[in-house]
Design a protein around this nucleic acid. Structure first.
Lengths: 347, 347
DNA sequence: TTGAAAGCGTTACCAG
DNA sequence: CTGGTAACGCTTTCAA
């Protein structure tokens, strides 16, 4: 038999549905005897409360919705892990949706989540997203939304992201302090904020040290391993080798290594590589790699914590959240990258 | 203002709630004029239908629940990706829960999902799970459940898993056919089915070729990189080097490489390594590694497809699902591993 | 073409 | 202590 409901229990015991409801939730105006009879029967007939029926009254669903471009990007897998962690601790269930980088799927996902009346929304927007109508709709619905990693400015929603520019600046500054001057940058696309910011950080650092920016030290492309290989070969055609390569991410770094192997260039002895990464394998592949480690898990946790604040989650204020108390809706948090201190150039 | 409901729209237009409901879903017994009036107002006031209120009637939620031990195991991240893919195509939303390998969290998660009246459940059980009461409860609730990757036998639920034993047998058979005879096995724990099955496959292959099983060629431990290192060192203490090492997974293989580096043993020239893996990085780290590639994404897709069948999802039968038609509840699917054909021992 | 009423499973309020 | 009734947001059936 399918799942029994309170009315059926009430029928068997010849009491009212109200009594059963109260007995099941241990109200103090129900006799112990009645409570026991109700509970025994509930147990016996495998009663399972109906989550959404209750929520119909309370106007809260204790669920939050997530929209990510793709879960097989390990970055988002880790971020979701962090979100789940914080959500579980606060008693929220998570509804996960994936946009596959398509703006229209993203739109539909958000709409579904709104219609499910999630208590809050955590969104990393797709690369394709241009139309922001759906976000206006969210705004009007008054369901809190926090962007994580990939955000849209100017809509009045908070965002939690990595401070790429600052991290890149610090990384390059470190390289300069270590005595290296010729630093190539294999950038990602500057059409994407991550690429733009990391490049800006690189330029900040050089400027600060009074080193002239050389366009022929920088190449743009995509963020894949193949792009890294292409990038290195292109820079290499232009002239002599650098001291260090700054790769915009770990995939690009791998590609640079590929190119160096092909060209017979010894690394890290001859050329050092530094890169952004969130994944341990970058260091496994090349123990010689210096990385800015960004922690997607932390990012997810922070995003969820900020969302809890926006949802007026009881306890979100009382707990010792490490989110500055003054963060209001529409303001954002930037998480710093963590530099691993080493450059293994033997020369 | 919060989200408006149908009653409010009805109030404004001075019509009944029924009319609004029907107009919104384009019923054919409503005049075009009325439909337009209702829709315009709905649009204007940002009406968003209430998912759960509708579902209250239909007895279907168009949601499925997932329970995984951990999402930061990339294996499960990929599997979830496969599930999401199939779910999205069939119009299901996904509620994701994580047990962190704890039996009691797993129990609570399943209970929550039941109470949410998910239409189906996809579960990879935690390592800790002993008590199967909760699964009896699922059984009684008549909500379909399919185990994926990690399953519990004898409960009458279907399971979708990797055919580890067969894959290991084929891998080792391939190694033997390639002319290598001394094959060490750094096994995981035989307390875990994955470990047991891979070891059994190894033994199957040796037996089939009439090669005597030597206990001192096998060592058990855990599944981590450290375990791999320990395992190699232990086997190494016992005698001369093997031709090839069979590692139960890629982490163990990495550990074996660590040990060899430390001991000054040249690989892959001197010792080849073969391993199970689902992750590309294994081959990145060691282009010399021969792996049995298991595809978690495919596993997830298959699991979802089988669940759809069990849920009598309209279309689950008509579509060309590649699940054998005769799979019934309680029966299982084993997905074969894919062998990458190469062993790069230069000797 | 529209509406009244009952129902989905539960809770809240007030009476008895 | 228990029960009747309305309400949550929506759909469906049947009458008008």
């Amino acid at each position: 038999m399918p799942i029994i409901n309170q009315a059926q229990i009430a029928g068997i015991l010849n009491v009212s549905r109200a009594t059963v409801s109260k007995a099941l939730k241990d109200a103090d105006d129900i006799s112990d005897g009645m409570k026991k009879r109700v509970r025994d029967l509930a147990e016996k007939f495998n009663y399972i409360p109906h989550y959404h029926a209750s929520n119909l009254q309370s106007k809260r669903t204790r669920t939050i919705g997530i929209v990510v471009p793709d879960i097989s990007y390990s970055f988002f897998a880790f971020a979701i892990d962090g979100i789940m962690d914080a959500a579980q601790r606060s008693g929220y269930q998570v509804i996960l949706t994936v946009s596959r980088e398509k703006a229209d799927i993203e739109r539909k996902n958000i709409l579904t989540l709104l219609s499910m009346r999630v208590d809050g929304l955590l969104v990393a927007v797709s690369r394709e997203t241009r139309n922001i109508q759906i976000f206006r709709k969210v705004r009007r619905s008054e369901i809190p939304l926090v962007f994580f990693d990939r955000s849209i400015e100017g809509l009045g929603f908070s965002a939690v992201g990595i401070d790429d520019r600052d991290a890149a600046r610090r990384l390059i500054d470190f390289v300069l302090r270590s005595g290296y001057r010729r630093i190539w940058h294999i950038a990602g696309s500057s059409g994407i904020d991550v690429g733009r910011n990391r490049r800006a950080g690189y330029e900040d650092a050089l400027k600060k040290r009074g080193i002239r920016l050389r366009k022929d030290w920088i190449t743009e492309g995509g963020f894949t391993r193949a792009d890294g290989r292409r990038g290195f070969r292109e820079l290499h055609r232009r002239g002599s080798l650098p001291d260090v390569i700054f790769a915009a991410n770990d995939q690009i770094a791998l590609g640079a290594y590929d190119a160096m192997r092909e060209l017979g260039i010894r690394y890290p002895d001859r050329v050092g590589v530094v890169a952004f990464s969130h994944h341990e394998y970058a260091e496994i592949v090349s123990p010689s790699l210096t990385i800015i480690h960004v922690d997607p898990c932390l990012l997810g946790r922070k995003a969820m914590e900020l969302l809890l604040r926006h949802m007026d989650h009881p306890g979100a204020r009382s707990r010792r959240l490490r989110i500055p108390a003054e963060i209001q809706k529409g303001e954002s948090i930037r998480i710093p990258g963590i530099r691993r201190e080493k450059i293994n150039r033997s020369s």
